[in-house]
């Protein structure tokens, strides 16, 4: 239990997907203009990363590794992620058309989010069991969502400031992100 907790803490805070591994930067800069949309994106990405990691683990353990098809890993995982997103959309549409319609106007492209593929590939490197893999993926995506929401809050405040013209917009966003990354380095003593 303690092992799982430390691993999750490490995945969410110490080796944060965005600030330590630099994955999912396009959505980090593109969707974080408002806290509520960032949170919605966080929920969706957490779901997709966790569910696709379950299937990726099974594909890796029972298909790619026994048949020595490691060179097909990236393309297989991309297919799995696309299929997971498509399947999820179909199920949500079936079980809850109203909610599907509500989410429809703002859902961003999750399939092409490199954080989803990145976490799946990290799981292969980690050579963990099923539950550990799923918890690692879940914690990584919670860390992703946390940083998205924090950064969105900062950007909402930055939008009200008068920044010099030279760094206004994305440059100021990147400077803020780098300071946030430095702040997250403070967690590095907790666990690895």
């Amino acid at each position: 239990m303690r092992e799982y907790l430390l691993m999750m803490l490490g995945a969410a805070l110490v080796n944060n997907v965005i600030l330590a591994r630099f994955l999912g930067l396009c959505s980090f800069m593109g969707v974080t203009t408002r806290i509520d949309t960032s949170l919605g994106m966080g929920f969706a990405t957490t779901f997709v990363i966790t569910v696709s990691s379950m299937i990726d683990w099974a594909v890796e353990a029972w298909l790619l590794e026994p048949l020595e098809l490691g060179y097909l890993r990236t393309v297989t995982f991309i297919m799995v992620i696309a299929a997971a997103v498509q399947f999820t959309e179909m199920v949500i549409r079936k079980v809850s058309p109203t909610l599907f319609r509500t989410l429809g106007i703002y859902l961003p492209l999750i399939t092409t989010n490199c954080a989803v593929l990145g976490v799946a590939l990290l799981l292969v490197e980690g050579r963990m069991g099923f539950l550990a893999s799923v918890l690692f993926a879940f914690a990584s995506s919670v860390g992703y969502s946390l940083v998205m929401v924090i950064f969105a809050g900062l950007r909402e405040r930055l939008a009200l400031t008068q920044a010099p013209l030279l760094i206004e917009g994305p440059p100021l966003g990147f400077i803020t992100a780098s300071i946030l990354a430095l702040a997250f380095m403070g967690f590095s003593g907790i666990s690895t």
Binding site: D36, T46, F47, S96, F100, T102
Partner: peptide, 16 residues
């Protein structure tokens, strides 16, 4: 925003 977050939470968090 409230209804959007409510929808997201129900659809994604419950099954997860």
């Amino acid at each position: 925003p409230c209804s959007l977050l409510e929808a997201s939470a129900i659809v994604y968090v419950l099954p997860l």
